[in-house]
Write a protein that binds this DNA or RNA. Structure first.
Lengths: 220, 220
DNA sequence: AAATTAAATTAGATTTAGCTAAAAATATAT
DNA sequence: ATATATTTTTAGCTAAATCTAATTTAATTT
């Protein structure tokens, strides 16, 4: 059974909102994510349910099925491979690629994706640091390293913190080192191990080795 | 005014059927080309006429407007650039690319096409030897050279013959050197200037310098 | 437990792109 | 010039994907 472009987009949204299929997702949340109205979502859920990519109990939200997960991961794979292409080959900035990849991901040609993958040298992560599922939908989660263990000039993305006390989070927020921020290690002071970090390609911040040790990063 | 994917495809068909806008085109011919029914074509012609990309007098066929020509050429440009990408970068065979390019040509991103063009080194012809219009829709027709003037290992496509006598055409037909055939110069005998030619990547043929001089080729 | 609020669904329209069948206009042939 | 054939258009229907407005179901509050 084939999915239309709209169905593919809904399925991807459901996959993301459900954290890869673990949670159940509400109609309203999907409407928010898809920038559409709940009424439209209800219609679409019936269709997706007919095609057996979700399990749908009216008024009780949806669960993605194994088949649905596989389909969603294929779409995500295509999206992320195209993002790598746009950044690595066509010199797009990493924050310019999403919209175009959103269109490219719906091109139907398994051969194209296979060849593109090879051409890009089988990348495992997209320009945002998100993992690229393989042909079979397997995803290898990227190892997380404490920020203070990164090499000089290494780039990465903040994905989590070890110490989640309010004080620490408040500090991070203040300096702009939010979860999801793109960072680069600009300098390391040998004396105390403190770091100079570039955040989102625009803001330089300094932090102690201690602080950096509590920030988890995926490298890219 | 933006065109939908379907409208873009109809406009391209009209452009081709009208020989680049010089002839008027009938509803039936469009239906044939688009593999759809004349009734559907009538509907679409009304839409294209509303958007002022064609001039439409009921029962008397259509003419493409200047604006329509520009739009069609942009779509053709995108199609052919993607074909070059697929062949040059992803190692598709030149006869495998059409369907995929048919989808890729509808991706909406001027920046993407600009970057792709640069990445491919501003190609002037697609893998079938057809010219790629520039950003402004200008097309430079490819120069035709007699086959005997081609260099060793050069590839190209047969586009015309100088001598169109029945005997000559019968000979060409017999050896498989039809108009449109892809050829490659494999060897040249210094003694008499005769050539060994690979046709459509599968058949080796030999021909005298005289014969080759009567075959016009575009190089690729 | 009843009333209120929030969330989700249904009913009924709209738009796009297709279809079939019938009607109308144009072209051709006797 | 009338009849026939061909081409084209219109009318009316379907399916996908949206919308608004109304209704129904579930959750929350008092």
């Amino acid at each position: 059974m084939n999915l239309t472009t709209a169905e593919e987009n809904y399925l991807k949204a459901i996959y993301h909102l459900s954290d890869g299929g673990s949670k159940s997702v509400s109609t309203n949340d999907i409407a928010g994510e898809m920038k559409t109205k709940p009424a439209s979502v209800s219609d679409m859920l019936r269709k997706l349910s007919d095609k057996e990519v979700i399990e749908y109990r009216k008024y009780y939200g949806v669960h993605i099925t194994e088949e649905g997960k596989k389909r969603a991961l294929q779409t995500i794979r295509k999206h992320r491979l195209w993002e790598v292409f746009l950044v690595d080959k066509l010199n797009f900035a990493w924050d310019e690629v999403h919209e175009v990849a959103e269109e490219l991901e719906h091109i139907q040609s398994p051969l194209l994706i296979q060849r593109l993958d090879a051409y890009l040298n089988y990348p495992k992560f997209d320009p945002h640091g998100d993992p690229i599922p393989d042909e079979y939908g397997d995803v290898r989660a990227r190892p997380r390293v404490p920020l203070n263990e990164m090499d000089l000039d290494q780039t990465g993305q903040i994905v989590a913190v070890k110490d989640s006390s309010a004080a620490f989070l408040r500090y991070l927020d203040k300096v702009g080192a939010y979860i999801g921020a793109r960072i680069k290690v600009l300098d390391r002071v040998e004396f105390d191990g403190s770091l100079e970090i570039l955040v989102d390609n625009k803001k330089n911040i300094f932090m102690s080795k201690d602080v950096a040790g509590n920030i988890l990063v995926i490298q890219s």
